[in-house]
Design a protein around this nucleic acid. Sequence first.
DNA 1: ATACTTAGTTGTTATAGTCAACTAAGTATG
DNA 2: CATACTTAGTTGACTATAACAACTAAGTAT
Lengths: 234, 234
Amino acid sequence: MTKASASQDISPAQCPRPFVTVDLVIFTLREGQLQVLLMQRAVPPFEGMWALPGGYVRPDEDESLDGAAARILGSKTAVATPYIEQLQGFGNARRDPRGWTATFAYFALIASEQLALQSGANAEDVAWHPVETRPVLAFDHDLILRTGLERLRGKVEYTILPAHLLPAKFTLPDLQSVYEQILDRRLDKSAFRKKMADAGLLEPVPGEMRHASNRPSQLYRIRSDATPFLGRTI
Amino acid sequence: MTKASASQDISPAQCPRPFVTVDLVIFTLREGQLQVLLMQRAVPPFEGMWALPGGYVRPDEDESLDGAAARILGSKTAVATPYIEQLQGFGNARRDPRGWTATFAYFALIASEQLALQSGANAEDVAWHPVETRPVLAFDHDLILRTGLERLRGKVEYTILPAHLLPAKFTLPDLQSVYEQILDRRLDKSAFRKKMADAGLLEPVPGEMRHASNRPSQLYRIRSDATPFLGRTI
DNA sequence: ATACTTAGTTGTTATAGTCAACTAAGTATG
DNA sequence: CATACTTAGTTGACTATAACAACTAAGTAT
């Protein structure tokens, strides 16, 4: 272990090239529960076990990491413009029995109205699972999933990211319920509404209300000019 | 571009293996300025330009990503237990003229008393640069550095991470000054001291004061049981 | 018509941040 | 040696924000 070999200026020929993948933690809200998209593996290792959707990055096609993540997301779900961000990298010799691998994990939120799974050869092997009752996962995917959950909970505290988990039109009680679901605690109604109003990222849909067997509630949508700011601190 | 080739179950033989490196954004505080550790490149590409310290990960030695980051940090600086965390991954075809590469960027904070550079063959090519007056960097390292700066500023808002930039014993005015330096704005003295006291992560060093030509100030240190919590929200 | 349920508002209290002044404890200076 | 000066550290008033609780509003169900 010489210092020279640690340098970035090692000759490319000497450099070992590991496998590099992108794995996705895709959350949605179904049946009032936070759910995650999983795939059942058809081949070893971990054949038959559930795993996060993922795939190899394609250096040969000039694909960026973000591009690979978007491609994989699009190949599993029918989603137009979801929220996606890089989560964290994982790389060591033990995460895959075949040897050293590295993955860039991504974190995505899907609106519940858009969670139709992409039809295809393997569509039947893709399914939503409630996070609470998820199966044991292949590789180190449980660690990655828990990292994604922490990120989600952390960001919910000070952003309006959870709006991405709802359909395009939603009520403020809907949104508050999502927050409470993710944080696992009750929130104060007036403080919540004030915070949302102050953030200025939502707007009421004029004249549109949701009717149930009680007082109707105003429908809101994300302001069209606000999409880039949903992940910002509010 | 078939769907099968996007799957994680592609045969390993078909999978292109990119170069994977780890790059470090190492901050310290010298002469009252936030500074970053840079290396001058001795070989093309970008020969003679400054770059972030980095190196290849070593799959053949069972090295994890965190292990590689720690190794590179240790090879450039003489630091015992600094703060280090993964920053973000960067990967595309344009960041290195030699072709597609991916890097896992790490973010480290070094106490100013420990910033002696590791002596060695290339020690003269390693230097601290004030962030404000840094040179143009090779590759996409300016983007990585700016990402690190954002992370630092973001975390300073709600953690006591900056304590890692100071020697083991420091005064509260010292620490407040570091916050002000990083955030580029003045903070209220009483609110700052109350916040630090409430966090409960610092303790006064009994009987030890710093003496200058004015009222002496109490020296504090990080509580030995608090190190894992310095990055936590306070 | 009345009860019921959830939407949405209002007001009150507790808490935390902001601003500004004050006291404290040393060194520097005549 | 007395006084001025400088920065450390505290205190209190004021203000913005969050937490708690009650209230009104507007529909459906019986």
